[in-house]
Amino acid sequence: MQRVNMIMAESPGLITICLLGYLLSAECTVFLDHENANKILNRPKRYNSGKLEEFVQGNLERECMEEKCSFEEAREVFENTERTTEFWKQYVDGDQCESNPCLNGGSCKDDINSYECWCPFGFEGKNCELDVTCNIKNGRCEQFCKNSADNKVVCSCTEGYRLAENQKSCEPAVPFPCGRVSVSQTSKLTRAETVFPDVDYVNSTEAETILDNITQSTQSFNDFTRVVGGEDAKPGQFPWQVVLNGKVDAFCGGSIVNEKWIVTAAHCVETGVKITVVAGEHNIEETEHTEQKRNVIRIIPHHNYNAAINKYNHDIALLELDEPLVLNSYVTPICIADKEYTNIFLKFGSGYVSGWGRVFHKGRSALVLQYLRVPLVDRATCLRSTKFTIYNNMFCAGFHEGGRDSCQGDSGGPHVTEVEGTSFLTGIISWGEECAMKGKYGIYTKVSRYVNWIKEKTKLT
């Protein structure tokens, strides 16, 4: 034993070699072989497995989906700052455009905790909710729209109204504003409101030439003092309507412009014939205590009207009353817009006519005020429907199939267009061939041609 100890002390290297040989010859039971080890760690190889990531292109799944990435790591994937920024906006807080917040056709661009709407022409605001041009839906104005110097929408209202708090709607500024039905039992019968379409306001006024200088022999019209197929109006439903009495009662109609003036057809009036105007009328054979009678003290036909040349060209006249009318729910003026808007309103496509005229061709006159909704007829169809001249200051309205029309005794009465609950004068009943005849239409004086003249002559002093 002493000898062994001496050998170990003198030859430590020998001992180490012996131990190493023993270990190498022993069977290893701690580690699995290569094949079995792979069965336990069965993990798919990654895209760049075996390579240094710093030297390969980034992978979106590896960089940002398996674990949260930084902007720089995302930049490695896209290799483009702009594309990385677009991805980053949604990656950080989701897609803010998912709810489609942009209105009126706006395009949404996502941002971090926010979004941006790219608005089409005519709109602005956070969600493109603000109209900035009158060309689109009248700028959301209830009545009139004008573009300011910086191309912003400025709404306005006709006389007797003021802008509401929203700067879009119009509200009454006087007790009985024009064009409004205020009798409670008839307010439910107000005709369907007309909503502004998209309009090209630059070209809204037709490029028409008034044929002022045409000389033409007097034409022989049949029954051209021209509501057939209409309905009984309720008291106060058309408070701007008046009836004219002269040699015979209810020979023509008219509309209240203001307390002192009536507008009617020029062919209705004769110099030297006494005319009485009755406002607030409903049943011409009954006294309903809503009527107001006034005498006409002055007749002003349009300066281009000449019955000797043509009885229905420039067929418009103004009547001055001896005493002002007292405005109330049964006696209310009709609204008159400017030339541009009167023309736009007419193009809405349908209007209402009213009167006490004959209820059928050569038949009896109506006792109760009649009204009828009539569609506008395109000019080409209008011209083809008659052998008589249709001037540019006239328009056609009615039904091709016949059966409904204005008729004798309705002449001078109103053709009105309702705009968001307020009625505007767009025409004056003038003439036609018979009444409600198939293929024939009622012919009306186009008020847009005469609004400046009306307003100039009827100013209240």
Rank of each mutant, 00 (worst) to 15 (best):
V30F: 14
L327D: 01
N304R: 11
E53C: 00
I300M: 08
C141W: 00
C178V: 01
R62W: 01
G179Q: 00
I210S: 14
F78L: 12
W431H: 11
R294A: 03
R373W: 04
Y115E: 04
N213A: 07
F388S: 11
I454N: 01
A366E: 15
C435G: 05
V92G: 12
G280V: 02
F55S: 14
Q241R: 06
V377T: 05
F388K: 11
G412Q: 05
D131T: 13
W118K: 15
E27A: 13
L211C: 10
T332E: 03
G13E: 07
S329T: 12
N59P: 00
R294Y: 01
E82V: 06
L189N: 15
T290N: 10
E142N: 05
I214Y: 13
H34Y: 15
R62M: 01
V353F: 03
L19M: 09
H289Q: 09
G160W: 02
N295R: 11
G105Y: 06
H415W: 03
E10R: 04
T215K: 07
C128H: 03
L19Q: 02
Q370F: 02
L189I: 15
L372V: 12
Q241F: 15
C18W: 11
R75N: 15
N151A: 08
E61C: 00
R449Q: 15
A207C: 06
A266Y: 03
K440F: 05
F176V: 08
C382P: 02
V227A: 12
R43K: 02
K247W: 07
T133M: 11
I443D: 01
H302A: 04
D338M: 04
C97M: 03
K247Y: 06
H289K: 12
R191P: 15
D200H: 06
H282V: 11
T133V: 11
Y201M: 12
V263K: 00
E171T: 09
I344C: 05
L346N: 04
I210A: 14
C252Q: 01
D378R: 06
S354P: 05
L41T: 04
N313S: 10
K137F: 09
S70L: 04
A250H: 14
G94C: 05
V368G: 10
V153N: 06
G355C: 08
Y341W: 07
F31R: 10
T458V: 06
N151I: 09
Q167N: 09
E142M: 12
N245I: 12
G13L: 14
S329K: 12
T389D: 10
P375S: 15
G357M: 10
V277F: 00
I309Y: 06
R180V: 05
G351F: 01
D405S: 15
L130T: 13
F395P: 01
T264C: 07
P333T: 03
R373C: 04
G230L: 14
Y22T: 11
G432E: 09
Q370D: 04
F360P: 15
